[in-house]
Design a protein around this nucleic acid. Sequence first.
DNA 1: AGTTGGCACTCAATCGTGACGAGTGCCAGA
DNA 2: TCTGGCACTCGTCACGATTGAGTGCCAACT
Lengths: 344, 344
Amino acid sequence: MQEDRRLAVLRAIVEDYVATEEPVGSKSLVERHGLGVSPATVRNDMAVLEDEGYITQPHTSAGRVPTDKGYRLFVDRLSTVKPMTSAEKRAISSFLDGAVDLDDVVTRSVRLLSQLTRQVAVVQYPTLSRSTVRHVELVALTPNRLLAVLILSTGRVEQRLVELPTELSEDALADLRSQVNQAATGQVIADAVRRLRETVPTTPGAGPDRDQGITRAVAETLADAMEDHRSDERIAVGGAANLARYGDSFDSAVRPLLEALEEHVVLLKLLGEATVGGTVTVRIGAEGPYEQLASTSVVATGYGPRDEALATLGIVGPTRMDYPGTMSAVRAVARYVSRILDEG
Amino acid sequence: MQEDRRLAVLRAIVEDYVATEEPVGSKSLVERHGLGVSPATVRNDMAVLEDEGYITQPHTSAGRVPTDKGYRLFVDRLSTVKPMTSAEKRAISSFLDGAVDLDDVVTRSVRLLSQLTRQVAVVQYPTLSRSTVRHVELVALTPNRLLAVLILSTGRVEQRLVELPTELSEDALADLRSQVNQAATGQVIADAVRRLRETVPTTPGAGPDRDQGITRAVAETLADAMEDHRSDERIAVGGAANLARYGDSFDSAVRPLLEALEEHVVLLKLLGEATVGGTVTVRIGAEGPYEQLASTSVVATGYGPRDEALATLGIVGPTRMDYPGTMSAVRAVARYVSRILDEG
DNA sequence: AGTTGGCACTCAATCGTGACGAGTGCCAGA
DNA sequence: TCTGGCACTCGTCACGATTGAGTGCCAACT
């Protein structure tokens, strides 16, 4: 089938272009890859591929370059998974195994991922939304200032100061502590928030009015902390030095990207929805939501314990990138991080 | 005095070069600045300045460019402080006033500083070393797992997990808690560490041996957390997008800088020792410790409550930068941040 | 129908050339 | 000590010729 050959040609073009960064012509193609046909034939195939929008030429009398659509086809149907070598696997696990806490896991992942892919790596901290409350601790700093510490199943710790309208006794604090923990501990965030808010009015005459005011203040603060979207936006970025390899197209590509890397909201949108179970999402060039990032691609996947996608990690790089290698690196890191979270 | 004029010429050269990014010639100099002499005279002065190593020409028949030594002289003796406008002051305080906690203060400072200076901003988190312990809280997660939460005067919170050799009762926990707080609360870190370590052996038969083991474990963990140098290295970086303005000399300058920005140890060394009391440190080009950053300068100063320099903040940029403006921006931000820490 | 070799054509990149001009250094004179 | 003048340097720009990789198309071949 000539259809098969055309696809083989497309694959060859993508691979060559990614490797050399230069438009690839018919002649060098047949030389490098062992397609058993003449350059002329390849040229015909190229013409068809160009008609169909998979490749394009920067200018007449130049070689061909894959379009976004071409990369898309390549990723979806032509690329073969490039499994990690066992050396790489060992490197990954030894790199991540030393992590002591959640922060450390995330920091190491970002570094590892950027080194493996030689791209800019982005790792989102595990979302609150699906995690559960492990414990709530209330600490009296002064008689009318309280520190509320929220410990989640992911190992994340959030703390908030609560200014109390009136002073609070040790006993009342102990009461409050157990009350709040009874409502929240073990619950999924969403439920904990609901139960905390319900707790307040139903507290049956547990004390004078002022105590109810305190309970309300504490419950509100905790619920706030849980819902706080700022927390969802926490993100670690690494490997920005890899941007220096962008060679050509600098201002057009790197500047917006550098800006995006500091806007965590933008980054989150870029990473997109977390996918589970080894599925890696690839967003190529203009498929993404930002015009200025039309020449960058995102390779991402979800991760989390027990195949719950708590958060997303991935890389951002030029559309011209080694998709198979990148995808397998992203998948591998996500898998190992998930495993670690499982154990922790 | 012709000496005075020569310095005026140097100042003019620096100012023009910073503004235009282009080597400045004798003619355009006399036009732009009102030195009342002819180009020829300026040329003579330039020749002297060049002999003395303050300026240099990229090639024959090009204008002059300041050398590191020239910038140094400019910064030390020629630049006049450029006071912040009251609008800028208002902007700074309104930008920082909304901060809710230490993290927020640092994050905002970094952003503010990078916007004010249009350079890459770096803010070190307040060091533990001079801050005091506000409170220690111990939370039993399970009967033999303890979460130790350390609250410092700067508002910083550190937490550690302690695995206990044996189970611990509620009462024993309360004992331990008050014991630890008695030793540490209100103390400067260094003292707290010492007193914690002393506490252990002198506890007089307070319980069976195993309780002593627990006390020791907890005290050690806390002392570790306090001493942990990882904490000293926390740093926030912002405004990396400003690197895109580097125009020329890209690979030579930006790449190493991007790398440095991810190596927080390197960054800390770059920022250098914290200076107090409105003194801003300027390190120009090759004066710094890293060869690869020979064309970048650092403008930094210490900050902290009550003129204690708890940490350093500053900016990193090309040697060709607006030193007066940058220095006053750095100083102003440091001052405001210090004030906020004072209040908090 | 599909493949191949041949051939004319296109066009970016490279190189050399010459004019231009900003800027310098130096010197003689004020 | 300053200034005007002048010759000189050298990077930059514009122009043109050359090169060569690569294409598209057509006629011939299988």
